[in-house]
Structure formats: C-alpha cells, structure tokens
Amino acid sequence: MSATLTESYTWFAACSTTDVPENGGVCVKYKNDQIALFNFTRRGEWYATQNMCPHRMQMAISRGMIGSIEGEPKVACPFHKKNFSLVDGRCLSDDSCGDLKTYPVKVEGGRVFIGIPGAEEDTWA
C-alpha cells in the first residue's frame, strides 16, 4: 500500500473478507460517508478510495471494474469509464476529471479494516 504510515489512522472495521467479491468492490458506510473497498484477489491486494466519482459526482466507484494499466492497479467508474489509480487515486484518463482520495487497508483475522486519517474528523466531506 502506498500510504505512508507516519500519519495516524483510526482503523475502522468495515466487513469480513468474504463479504467482498473476488476481484470486485463493495461500498462501505463510514459515518455519513461512503468508501469503495476493493478485493483485488488476483494481486492479493486490498484498496480503498472515496466512493464518489469526481467527474459527475456519482456514488459509483465501488461498482466499477478493476484491472491494471502497465502494471498499475486501477478502477473504471461505471458511468463514463473514467480510470483512477487504486494506489494514489489519481485520474488516469486523458481528460482528467480530478482525483480520488485513497485509504490504507489492512486485513486481520478475516476482518477488513480501513484507515481513516486523523482521529474523529471526517476530512473529505
């Protein structure tokens, strides 16, 4: 995972590993926000990003298809197929529409945890 762990995170228990389809995503409710969580089984990796696509402000990233471009893991929004890096959330499409916020993910004892930066504050509302 790319996020450096020097920042402090609150680890939020999202769901169990089997709740997330293989090589697919789900949407996680965290307080009043929505986080897209991906189980990239092929790579043995987990990723989390904001669920809202910045292009047309749609809550849809979790329903997008994941894959890779030149080795970099990415997700395509189901609405207009804008591509975003799962590593740092940057928009990979030629006509960029802004980037996604990303979150670190860890798996422990069959549970999936999403790292929320800082303590209580929601920073991306």
Binding site: N23, R42, R43, M65, I66, G67, S68, A76, N83
Partner: peptide, 19 residues
C-alpha cells in the same frame, strides 16, 4: 475470466477485456 486471463492473457485485466 480468470482461466482465460491466466491461459491466454497477462496482467490483471481491465474494463475493456473483462466484459
């Protein structure tokens, strides 16, 4: 899909080849 990718392709797929 995974069998096809493992046998005939490379990488992790994308929104073009998956559907």
């Amino acid at each position: 899909y995974n069998e096809v990718l493992d046998t005939l392709g490379k990488g992790d797929g994308c929104e073009i080849c998956k559907p």
